[in-house]
Design a protein around this nucleic acid. Structure first.
Lengths: 329, 329
DNA sequence: AAATCTATTGAAAACGTTGCCATAGTGGAT
DNA sequence: ATCCACTATGGCAACGTTTTCAATAGATTT
């Protein structure tokens, strides 16, 4: 910065003003400084400016994992939103680390980010509290906690929508495959199951659900179990697409036509769902990310209360894996 | 920090020494300071320490996109590696921005990161140079440029491996579907094509390749084109799995059994490849990420030359989509 | 007992910014 | 001509660390 000042023949203060775009600098001088900065390819050190302003210009994003497609999509959205606001994105993958009770303090968040966004972390109240201690705004995604800022979908309603789709097609024997344990998404898991159950009960039908280990393998097994019933379901809804893919595989191997004999539905609109022509419910993770970033920016600017909730819509994606049940039955 | 010092009854210098874990502090004092820091849940401000050390403790990772599964996997690996070394990860998604000539300077890299890792950016020499100007080590992944640090796979060899697999099964009419334009992966694209061509020529067979738009849709179209040949191939290899998935769809719709009539192979070991039982070549993106992070750490520590190349192995993943051609032909 | 060495600690200068206050012009109203 | 309000600019302290150097107190050697 000193070099820029010297080159433009002005003081440090003036360079600082130009770099921050604050008013009160003569146009001619402004341009001269700008040119000098460009020639030296100078950018301000966030380190130094953050030291005095107390703002770091960075937002920490905490994800449980980075590999599953879902997180990539949410991150893409967050990145878009933050970039627009000129903020940088720090990404922390907690993964296994999370098992340890004090994991929140192992993250160097304290004075190193202006806000924290968690993605589908399903935090406990205690974990939330610990993150609060960092002293920066906390925005949750994929999770709704009263009194805390969050962006999420209505899991219950989304599943209800899916269930009704199957009922509207004329199915009466509808089964649900959910996950249990091992998954990091406890709350959302429960909500989806309840959404299914209440919709079935409201329709005066028997609620029929199987819980299995999460993931594709779980779906395979659970589907096998359903097929071994003396009157198998004519439609199967799963908690998320991965499970549906496993179920799909079992059906394929058993030579059971989809949707001919059994209609199959997923949830999430997984990248690969399109490949299998799987009817599903879209929750547009990228939009969730953008919304979370925008919300964060607004909170930082004081334009939004630090407990605003943003609910994202879900959309039914109709593909080839669902149809009316065979009339013969 | 001052608070910690006061609470522990020592000077700032001593606290600093304790926090950095440098020797020269009496064990008793060390413990007292540690406790005080814990009670105040104090962590050092990277901002301030970076200001004086010149190190930021952060590494910038530049990716073209964040959504595709591949990037999530590489990031997961990078995150693992950096976390182990106590470094934070800044992620910049350049995406569309890249069209603009000066995009490199729009990233606040200069004094804000200790190193830059690019992921499958396929940078031009000029872009590399611009990133060099930032003045920090540059590590490329998915791209090999002489004289620059990089982690990559041998695309030619990987495709050659795949091609030989098909030839070993007894196929002689093997076609290749590659991508052209629109993709950000020019170099890798060319290498893969050449790997196929040279292997075929070496085997004394006719080289037969179709280029199409990248992605699933391109695969669908290209497969259709191949099927309209008066003697369609008995095996098809594609530049990457996405294309293979499109091709798979066309085959499914045409009622052509895979691998019965046509063997199909992808490349990359896409998440969804397992769903389609697609034989493919794995390049373990997560391992690439870890290797890139480790290399970066080593370069920063001066333990590796700033132009070290790390070549990652590829592995043939045998699944159900390839088999010997029908003897009848 | 004096001298030397070592281990531990503290004091103060830097690092590159920002924000406040002071200063110097500039033009208009009195 | 004098004063005022205003704009543009510079000077300097402060932010929270690390680093260098000096100081102190025991311990060891002569």
């Amino acid at each position: 910065m000193r070099d820029v000042a010297r080159r433009a023949g002005v003081s440090l203060s003036t360079v600082s003003r130009v770099m921050r775009g604050v008013p009160g600098v003569a146009p001619a001088v402004r341009q001269r400084v700008q040119e000098a900065a460009d020639e030296l390819s100078y950018v301000v050190s966030r380190n130094a400016s953050g030291l005095v302003t107390g703002r770091t210009g960075r937002v920490a994003v905490i994800v449980p994992f980075l590999q599953p497609w879902f997180f990539g999509s949410v991150l893409a959205g967050i990145s878009d939103g933050l970039q627009r606001a000129g903020l940088d994105m720090l990404v922390y993958q907690v993964g296994e680390l999370r098992r340890q009770p004090g994991w929140t303090s192992s993250l160097p968040l304290r004075r190193n980010s202006d806000a924290v966004i968690t993605v589908a972390m399903d935090l406990s109240a205690e974990e939330c509290g610990r993150l609060d201690d960092v002293g920066v705004p906390l925005v949750l995604t994929g999770q709704s906690v009263p009194g805390r800022a969050g962006v999420f979908i209505d899991d219950r309603q989304g599943v209800a929508k899916a269930t009704r789709h199957l009922l509207n097609l004329g199915h009466t024997r509808v089964a649900y495959i959910g996950s249990e344990g091992g998954s990091w998404r406890g709350r959302s898991s429960r909500d989806r199951l309840e959404g299914f159950q209440s919709t079935m009960v409201d329709a005066g039908l028997a609620e029929w659900s199987v819980l299995s280990t999460p993931g594709r393998r779980g779906g395979e097994l659970a589907m096998g179990e359903l097929l071994s019933d003396h009157r198998p379901p004519t439609a199967v809804l799963t908690e998320f697409d991965d499970i549906a893919m496993g179920a799909h595989r079992t059906l394929r191997r058993s030579g059971i036509p989809v949707p001919g004999a059994i209609s199959l539905m997923g949830f999430d609109n997984h990248e690969a769902a399109a490949i299998l022509d799987l009817t599903t419910v879209d929750q547009s993770p990228r939009a969730i990310g953008t919304a979370a970033a925008d919300l964060t920016v607004d909170i930082l600017a004081g334009e939004a209360p630090p407990d605003r909730h943003v609910e994202m819509p879900t959309r039914l994606i109709l593909r080839q894996s669902t149809s009316a049940p065979l009339p013969s039955e």
